[in-house]
Write a protein that binds this DNA or RNA. Structure first.
Lengths: 158, 158
DNA sequence: CGGATTTCTGCACAACCTGTCCAGTTCTGG
DNA sequence: CCAGAACTGGACAGGTTGTGCAGAAATCCG
């Protein structure tokens, strides 16, 4: 991650439509250099993808909720030695409205981000999340406004 | 969002490198159709961008923390009528390690996602977040593992 | 300091893709 | 059943990509 890497990322983040050739012109380096940098950034894992970013809101899911789950500690699989968290993770991954889930510090807690079509619909989603014996409790918080939209660019610039 | 839209999104999400022409071949429709669909999905806000996705971890920020802030309710600006939340939002937006921030239900609460170079470094980030008189309190939770990585594709498929 | 290695440059080529038309056909809602 | 909207298939010029290569430049390390 030298300065050129940062400028490459910056340029493609600002204007994803520019091609490699145009980028090389703007950055004042050879085309092959830009290609090599992009390849390296991809293979080193800094750039994880180029997929289209989708807006849950525009897809009809304007309500975002943050759930904190309490997981039964003794619910691991004694045979596979798989932790309860992973089992719950699979349960959650099967629910489309679950956008992400993490285990967090605290006895048996997980943090889950869900979206729903309405506040009423959120109840349905929560019920689906709760539909696993390993999930003991769920506290819900509703997101009202997005003060800082998700971003990673400032990190790369720093 | 009909079935073709879903297939277009799906294809580009799975293989962002395919061009419009190749996509039209795989989907069995004319090139102009794919272009028209993409244009519509972009202008309707379903597709919000094509930028490279960056991994905070690969950028040297392997620690993720979730902060819940308590905001002083009486800290709004009497002249501009700007709420305290927005002012805090600007404060947070200036911190590169703040990846996103939302206001949430609860008296004066905000939810903030931050990253840091280490657990020790997290303290520095938190201190920066707290460096605003409108932020009264901050409770911290550290993310241990990512059970479900952030995703929106299942929503589009549904 | 000096050699070895890596990186960058500038260029070339063929193959391919994009943006943009168009006329004709097919769908779809009212 | 009609009219507007959407899709098809085709065409065109111009630009871009992937790839390879030799030489110059920068960097590393003993």
């Amino acid at each position: 991650m030298d300065d050129l890497d940062r400028r490459v990322i910056d340029l493609f983040a600002e204007e994803p439509r520019v091609g490699v050739l145009e980028a090389s012109r703007r950055l004042g380096v050879a085309r092959g250099t830009v290609q090599a940098r992009l390849d390296k950034l991809s293979s080193s894992g800094v750039i994880t993808g180029w997929g289209p970013d989708l807006s849950p809101e525009a897809l009809g899911y304007p309500v975002t909720g943050f759930l904190t789950l309490e997981i039964r500690q003794d619910a691991g699989d004694a045979i596979t030695h798989e932790g309860a968290h992973d089992a719950v993770g699979r349960h959650l991954a099967a629910i489309a409205e679950v956008l992400e889930a993490h285990t967090i510090t605290g006895s048996g807690d997980m943090w889950v981000r869900v979206v729903a079509r309405s506040n009423a619909d959120l109840q349905r989603v929560i019920d689906r999340v709760l539909d696993d014996e390993r999930v003991e409790r769920c506290s819900t918080v509703i997101a009202l406004a997005e003060q800082v939209p998700f971003r990673t660019l400032p990190l790369a610039r720093a």
